[in-house]
């Protein structure tokens, strides 16, 4: 069950999107996130949907695979949608006791839902098409100018890449510990929330202990491989900003501009 989580995992493929400069992809992702919050009507989302499908095609990452990443967020999405549905003031369409649905509420909750969906879909392109190590070296390179004012760019990048590397390992371990505790009669999915939360303790403690042990061994293994911080380190894959990056930048910014221009169509809706 825990294996279904795909956020933060790489989808290996030889597409153009995979080969773009990670720095560009990071910056574009930020632009994308900001743009999502500036969308004022459904036309914008329609174009955004088109952009997402185009990206999925260009990146050779199947839509099915992308949508799977939404699954763990289903609860969050439901809560957000319901809250917005019932809590927005406006023209009342339906009322039952304290619950009321307004026209504005429906629009708002649909908006929120779409925002979350596109937020996840869009940003997961970044992690699907960029290996964690390229991603972090992109981050490192973007943060480098700030290292003069004390931002530990290399250390942050290293920690991130290690964290990403160990996500699947620790997920697997959690599954194992859960199975082991179930075999000892732990009831993990019974009782009320408090009981279930308590049942997590015997899972989290061994997980933490093992994570610390792993960290210890990893540190020794890294030192054995001559790791001594970020000074005079070279890279297997040096980052190069190429012509195709400029083309991608123009196309993407163009698409975002179109999406924002859709705000002008707002009156039509």
């Amino acid at each position: 069950m825990l294996k279904d989580i795909t956020i933060g995992q790489y989808y290996p493929s030889e597409s153009v999107v995979h080969k773009l400069d990670p720095r560009l992809k990071i910056v574009l992702s930020f632009i994308y996130i900001v743009a999502i919050f500036f969308i004022k009507n459904f036309w914008g989302f329609l174009v955004l949907g088109g952009l997402t499908i185009a990206l999925s095609y260009a990146a050779k990452v199947p839509m099915k695979f992308l949508l799977k990443g939404l699954k763990p967020l289903l609860i969050l999405m439901t809560i957000t949608a319901l809250l917005n549905l019932f809590m927005t003031d406006g023209e009342i369409l339906w009322k039952w006791g304290v619950l009321r649905v307004t026209k504005e509420g429906i629009v708002m909750s649909a908006f929120m839902l779409l925002r979350i969906v596109f937020l996840v879909l869009g940003t997961s392109f970044l992690t699907y098409t960029t290996t964690p190590i390229t991603l972090t070296s992109g981050m490192e390179s973007l943060l480098k100018p700030f290292s003069k004012i004390g931002v530990p760019a290399h250390e942050i990048a290293m920690m991130m890449s290690i964290a990403l590397r160990f996500i699947p390992t620790l997920i697997e371990e959690t599954d194992k510990i859960m199975a082991a505790q179930k075999a000892r009669g732990a009831a993990l999915s019974e009782g009320n929330i408090l009981k279930r939360a308590k049942a997590l303790v015997p899972i989290l403690i061994p997980l933490f202990v093992s994570a610390f042990r792993r960290a210890d061994e990893l540190a020794v293994a890294m030192e054995s491989r001559c790791y001594h911080g970020g000074n005079d380190r070279t890279k297997l894959k040096e980052l190069k900003y190429q012509k195709k990056d400029t083309i991608a930048l123009i196309l993407f910014v163009g698409a975002i501009a179109v999406i924002l221009l859709c705000n002008l169509l707002g009156a039509a809706l």
């Binding site: 790489y10 964690p132 190590i133 890449s161 290690i162 590397r165 792993r214 061994e217 990893l218 293994a221």
Partner: peptide
Amino acid sequence: DNQLVASI
């Protein structure tokens, strides 16, 4: 598992 640093 505890000596591999990178995801690729």
